[in-house]
Each structure stands twice: as structure tokens, then as C-alpha cells.
Design a protein around this nucleic acid. Structure first.
Ligand SMILES: [Mn+2]
Ligand SMILES: [Mn+2]
Ligand SMILES: [Mn+2]
Ligand SMILES: [Mn+2]
Lengths: 218, 218
DNA sequence: AATAATTTTTAGATTAGTCTAAAAATAAAT
DNA sequence: ATTTATTTTTAGACTAATCTAAAAATTATT
């Protein structure tokens, strides 16, 4: 059985694992978890003992298959709870994360199965992130950042890379929601900003916005 | 802010407080929480520092108003989650307690308000226990144990005193559910058993059953 | 290749929550 | 009113999770 702290470490390592291909460094973990490197070293030793990850001194860590499954399950719970909060309890998408951080640690396989069914077996969470299935598998997703599109490309807005409240509230303000169609009218090479058209309105978004919004081309 | 352990102590003391009128003894708490008396002594000192309860050496403890409110809030959360599990996720009433023990510690006032509304502001949990309101007040309830009724009394089954899975499953087997009408046909003084009629069936229940079922006379 | 900078690990402390065993206080029984 | 039994508290120890400061290893730079 994993403790709450162990679960948080595993989940963060899992998220870091998606991008990196080498071992995940002690410092990278410490930054994400807002702890000190020395604390991370202590914890990864414990997690290595528990066969959750492979650790060689100074080489960083990689999750074992067991560790990956455990992590995917926590992510699954986190995202299902986020769907619950938004779909059933009318939370807005910028206020669900902290509560889901707590709910993801509730231990009851039955609860998650029933919640999944109650929600209608959702595929994505309110931020467009894919919900891992019961076995820990994550559906591949062919999506691009808005910044990767070119003039005249059309796509559906399917997710956010940054899911901070600030960014989500910006999107709300601009009436950009997931599921919505977006057309790239033009791009400004100088500052990377993108002129888009959505809901019959045409306006410019900065590069920072464009590199944090996932689009599925159609 | 209270830790998970502190919350569990407070909640148990609150439950013990309802019955006893003197201070709650160290041993009573230790028994309920399955810990040692020495651990309880340590914890109640900490809780006294936090103004949750009054503690005088060897005299047991009593909750302060602040402590009572905190406890009622945990109980409120526990019971609302139980309603959610039964009403929305189709759990049976004998399998919700352990999950609710975890969910009751989720910290988010907004979550509980929204959950309460989502559930239609229930007054009682699946075991017939009154759900404290937001301010920590508990509605008075005029209910008797089945064992306190006499021949020809009629009432509605409104709650259980023992909510162990074993007892709840017994009730399921006998098709005794909350909200149901029960008539006392006769009582056997020798062993305290009670002959009841419900749903057109007439049968005898033991004293143990009769002292664990709450009835509201009509 | 040697030196400097950075990262990672170790050593030692701290806090929360728990335990066992012994001491002290209270309650019960002679 | 003593003695005995029970309850409660204290003293000291343990584990989990964290920290600071120092040592060791790795990486980057001259
Ligand atoms: Mn989230
Ligand atoms: Mn999310
Ligand atoms: Mn319960
Ligand atoms: Mn209940």
C-alpha cells in the first residue's frame, strides 16, 4: 500500500516521464513537488525498495511497469473526480484541481468504477486531458498546439497544456471553450501571435496563449 | 487547520459526548480509535492547546463549542458522502462507511455545499442518522428503539443504532428497510424478542435486533 | 586535463503520531 | 482506612516525512 506522499511522488515522476527519455532527476522532482532534493533522495530510495521505480545513485529514476500502473491509476482518479466536479457539481474548470488533488488519494476501486459509470465513462477531463483506463493505458491523441498550426488551418479546441486558473479564466473571458472550432486567419512571425476566428469573432492571441492550447485539426 | 488524525479523535469524542455527561475518559477514546491510552493522552494535550477541548489531568475531556462545531462538520461530511454513495453511485448501505471515513477528511467547504445541493439537501444519511447542518446544529429527533415499543404500537423504521455490515445485511434479508411501517404484534418477556408485522409478513426478531432499530411512532 | 559550478547524496535534526514499560493517581474492595 | 485493582500519565523509543548544512559525485568551462 502506498502512502499519500508516495502517491504524490509517483504521480509527479509519471508526468515528468512523459516528456523526458532519460532518468528523471532528483532536482526535477524536487521542483515539481516543492520539496528539497535531499527529501527526494530519501523518498526515491523508499520507492525503489517498493519496486515502484529503478534508482541508481546520481542517475535519476525511471518508473517500473508496476509504478507506471500505480501512477496512471492516481491520474485516472484525479481526472474522473475533476469531471464529477464540473459535470455534476457545477464547479468551473479553473477551480477543480486542488480538490481533485485530495480526492485522487481516496482508496476504493469500487468507488472509482462506480464513479466512472455514473459519469458515463468520460474519455477526457475538463481540461481535455485523456483519462487513463482501468488498466492504466492512455489512448494516443493526435493533437497539436495552436502555435503549430499554419494560416487557414481549422481545428477543434481539445485541451490545455497549462491548466492554471489564470489561463483558464483568460480562455473563459475570450469565450474559447473545449470542443469549439478555431480557424487560423494569420500568424505574426515577429512575436508569434496568432490571429484566430472563433464563434464569428476574429482576434489575436499571443504566442504564450498559442503554445498552451491543444487543437485537433479537421 | 486540523490534521487527519486530529479530526478522527475529535469525531470520536463528539460521538462519545452525546451519551456521557461527564468528561470523556482516555480509555473510552482509546477503545473507539483502536489506539493505546498513552497515545490518546498525547493527542488530547495537543487538542487542548488548539482549544478544541478542555482537558484536566485524570478528569477526561469535553469538547469546546469550537470543537463541537468542528466535529459536527466532519460528521456532516461523512453522512453527506454516504448519501452520495447510496443515492448516486448505487452502493448498498452496508458498504459505504469505510469510503466515507476517507471522504469526510476532504477539505473544501465549497465541495460540501455543492454536494449537499446536488443531493437535494438530505436530512438523514442511509442509516437514518441526522445530517448536521452547515452551522453544526443537529435536528432533534423523537425516535425510540423497537424494544421500547409495546404491543399494538405502530411506527416507521427510521434508523439503526448499530450500523455494522452484519446487522444491515440481516435487515436486508428480512426486508426491513428505512421508511417502512412496522407494527408490534406481541412481545416475549422471557428473551426480549418482539413479534412484528411488516409488509404483510409477521415474524419474530430477537432482543438484539429490537435494541438496534429506531422507530418513529405514528 | 584541470578547475569551477552544479547536482546529488549523506549526516544529523525536527515534528507528528504512535508504541511499550514504568510511575503516579484515582477508584474499588476489603 | 488500608490495600488492591484500574486508569492515566510519563519517559523513552520508533517510523515517516521533512529540513539544513556539509560532503561527494557529476557536469560544464576554461
Ligand atoms: Mn488537475
Ligand atoms: Mn485536469
Ligand atoms: Mn458511517
Ligand atoms: Mn451512516
Amino acid at each position: 500500500m502506498l502512502t499519500l506522499s508516495e502517491e504524490n511522488y509517483i504521480k509527479e515522476i509519471y508526468h515528468l516521464d512523459v516528456v523526458a527519455d532519460k532518468g528523471i532527476s532528483t532536482n526535477a522532482i524536487a521542483n515539481k513537488l516543492q520539496t528539497k532534493a535531499s527529501s527526494v533522495t530519501d523518498m526515491i530510495k523508499k520507492l525503489a525498495d517498493k519496486k515502484v521505480l529503478i534508482y541508481k545513485k546520481y542517475q535519476g529514476v525511471t518508473l517500473t511497469d508496476f509504478g507506471k500502473k500505480a501512477a496512471a491509476n492516481i491520474v485516472r482518479k484525479h481526472r474522473l473526480w475533476e469531471v464529477f466536479l464540473v459535470d455534476k457539481l457545477q464547479f468551473s474548470w479553473d477551480e477543480v484541481h486542488d480538490v481533485a488533488e485530495q480526492l485522487e488519494h481516496i482508496k476504493s476501486p469500487k468507488l472509482i468504477d462506480k464513479l466512472d459509470a455514473f459519469l458515463g465513462f468520460p474519455k477526457r477531463d475538463p481540461h481535455g486531458d485523456i483519462i487513463p483506463d482501468k488498466k492504466g493505458n492512455v489512448q494516443a491523441q493526435e493533437q497539436l498546439l495552436l502555435s503549430a498550426l499554419i494560416k487557414d488551418d481549422i481545428g477543434i479546441c481539445v485541451g490545455v497544456k497549462d491548466s492554471s486558473a489564470a489561463f483558464l479564466q483568460y480562455l473563459d473571458k475570450q469565450k474559447i471553450a473545449l470542443g469549439q472550432e478555431i480557424k487560423v486567419i494569420d500568424k505574426e512571425p515577429f512575436d508569434g501571435s496568432v490571429i484566430i476566428k472563433t464563434q464569428n469573432k476574429q482576434f489575436s492571441v499571443s504566442q504564450k496563449i498559442a503554445t498552451n492550447l491543444y487543437i485537433q485539426k479537421i
